[in-house]
Nucleic acid binder design. Structure first.
Lengths: 206, 206
DNA sequence: GTCTATAAATGGATAGAC
DNA sequence: GTCTATCCATTTATAGAC
């Protein structure tokens, strides 16, 4: 693969994701993508087998991202366990800011939100991103915290679900519309999540 | 409007919603709709100005549904306030079962999930259905419960948000994919929500 | 109120030159 | 690796007969 080859391919992928996340895969034409990338339609077929191959490549890479996150989580697990109230809240807020709103993954989530309705692979990936992956991680975190006596004894998986329900709630409430993410929405979301996490903290930490 | 006119128009609307909710508005063609309804494409233009008019009619009616729900909520508010634990949990579970999973509104939510990404009217309606409407209602419910001494003093709006976050969490976790709703998913969802609501009840009710 | 016929645009994809 | 040129299917929408 030559450098310029890789470059065009990446630009196609980025542009496609940009369009897919607002218009949905099937509404976006190869022509739309090419108009923005600045190449002719036929050139796309040098890099990808067909239109679906573009989508599959994005899904595949996101799957890899999930796997990578999983092992990272495990590495940093022990470190993330000493938590005063402010730090605990900051972690939750920055999870939305740094992970869910991270440019690329946010676009992927938006795209999956559309495609999951009729694409099973997209549905599975979306479920993993918003439920399985974070809940698995949080379960381990709360489990360790209980053993160390920071959190009062309880079912760590249920606590993780309660935690994740707050994250999802705020994320969906403030960032799922058609408007671009405003700094107003960002700070409202941070404020609401802070309040909810404060209460969460006071409920379970000791 | 003659009776048969109304009938075809309604069938077109139902069929369109059926297709929109899985494939998205722009992917579905007038032909697709007509094939199922059993009429020719041109007949659609007798009932609707154009394709977008079909979508707008669905959105408009859903808006009316929301308004109607709002006034209904107010009427039955006083009645819904005497609640032992089991009844409280049953209300939450049946909210998903009877309202969010109610055939028509479930389809609308699925359709809005797709369209909200690029259609501001759809985004607003979706937000109202999943956040504004239920939270407003629950805020009033908890407010009354506090005054009557059933729930311990707190900010009713925040409690309503915590409540709704559990509903949304379970609803999205079990019913947002591409597969049809199985009775397995139904009972898993009911079980998980019951557990979460039990804990919620024990936290706030006295 | 529904049909046939058709216009005009847009879609995915390929062949072959450079 | 990108281009021109082209094919063929599908789409929205309209005109006008019945």
């Amino acid at each position: 693969m030559s450098p310029s080859d890789k470059n065009t391919k990446e630009i196609i992928l980025d542009t496609a994701l940009d369009l897919f996340q607002t218009n949905g895969y099937s509404t976006v034409s190869i022509r739309d993508i090419c108009k923005i990338v600045g190449i002719k339609e036929s050139s796309v077929y040098y890099h990808f087998k067909n239109k679906e191959d573009i989508l599959n490549t994005i899904l595949l890479r996101t799957g890899a991202w999930v796997t990578e996150k999983k092992s990272r989580f495990r590495e940093t697990l022990e470190a993330s366990v000493r938590v005063p109230r402010e730090a605990f809240i900051a972690v939750g807020v920055s999870y939305i800011e740094k992970c869910l709103l991270e440019e690329k993954i946010f676009k992927v989530i938006r795209m999956l939100t559309i495609e999951k309705q009729r694409n099973e692979a997209a549905a599975d990936l979306c479920h993993e991103l918003l439920f399985t992956l974070p809940t698995e991680h949080q379960t381990q975190v709360f489990s360790i915290m209980m053993k160390k006596g920071f959190v009062r004894e309880d079912n760590p998986e249920v606590i993780a679900s309660e935690y994740q329900s707050l994250i999802i709630f705020v994320f969906q409430k403030y960032f799922s519309g058609s408007k671009p993410i405003s700094s107003d929405a960002r700070s409202s979301a941070a404020q609401e999540l802070s309040l909810l996490l404060k209460r969460f903290y006071d409920r379970y930490f000791q």
